[in-house]
Simulated scan of single mutants.
Amino acid sequence: MAVIMVTGAASGLGYNAARALSDAGHDVVVHVRNESRLSEPGRWKGVVIGDLARVDEIHDVARQASAFGRFDAVIHNAGVMTSPDVITVNVLAPYLLTASMDKPGRLIYLSSGMHRGGSMDLRRLSRGTGSYSDSKLWITTLALALASRWPGTSSHAVDPGWVPTRMGGAGAPDDLTAGHETQVWLATHDDVSPSTGGYWYHLQAQTPHPACQDEAFQAQLIETLESHTGVPLD
Rank of each mutant, 00 (worst) to 15 (best):
S148D: 15
V55Q: 13
I58G: 09
A78L: 03
K103D: 14
P94K: 12
I87K: 12
A73E: 00
G118T: 11
Y132C: 06
G113M: 14
T88V: 14
P151M: 00
V86Q: 01
N90T: 00
G118L: 08
V91P: 06
G130S: 02
S148K: 15
G69S: 08
H115P: 12
H59K: 14
P104A: 06
S154K: 09
P94F: 04
V86A: 04
L137A: 06
G152F: 08
S111Q: 00
R123D: 15
G118C: 12
F71I: 06
T141R: 02
R123T: 15
L125V: 03
T88M: 14
V74K: 08
H115F: 12
A145W: 11
H115M: 10
I58N: 11
L107C: 03
M101C: 15
L110C: 03
A93G: 05
H76M: 13
R70D: 14
P94D: 00
L125Q: 04
T140S: 12
G130P: 10
V55L: 14
L142E: 09
S83H: 08
H76Q: 10
I108N: 10
V74D: 00
H115S: 08
L96W: 01
D85I: 02
S112T: 07
S112Q: 08
D56C: 02
I87T: 12
D85H: 12
A62H: 08
I58H: 09
L110R: 02
M101A: 04
M114S: 15
N77Y: 11
S83Q: 09
Y132W: 11
T88Y: 00
H59G: 06
T88I: 11
T82R: 15
N77D: 01
A62Y: 12
L122W: 01
G79I: 04
A65W: 01
I87H: 06
F71S: 02
R123V: 06
Y109D: 08
A73G: 01
Q64P: 07
A147K: 06
D85S: 14
V89F: 14
R63A: 14
A67K: 10
S126Q: 15
H76G: 01
V74P: 07
T140W: 02
V89N: 09
G113L: 13
T153I: 09
I139V: 11
A67Q: 13
G128S: 11
S66K: 02
G130C: 03
L146C: 05
A99R: 08
E57P: 10
D51N: 11
S100A: 14
L107W: 14
M120L: 15
N90R: 00
Y132F: 13
S83I: 03
P84F: 12
L52Q: 08
R63D: 05
T88D: 06
R63G: 06
R124H: 13
I75E: 09
D121W: 13
I139P: 02
V91T: 10
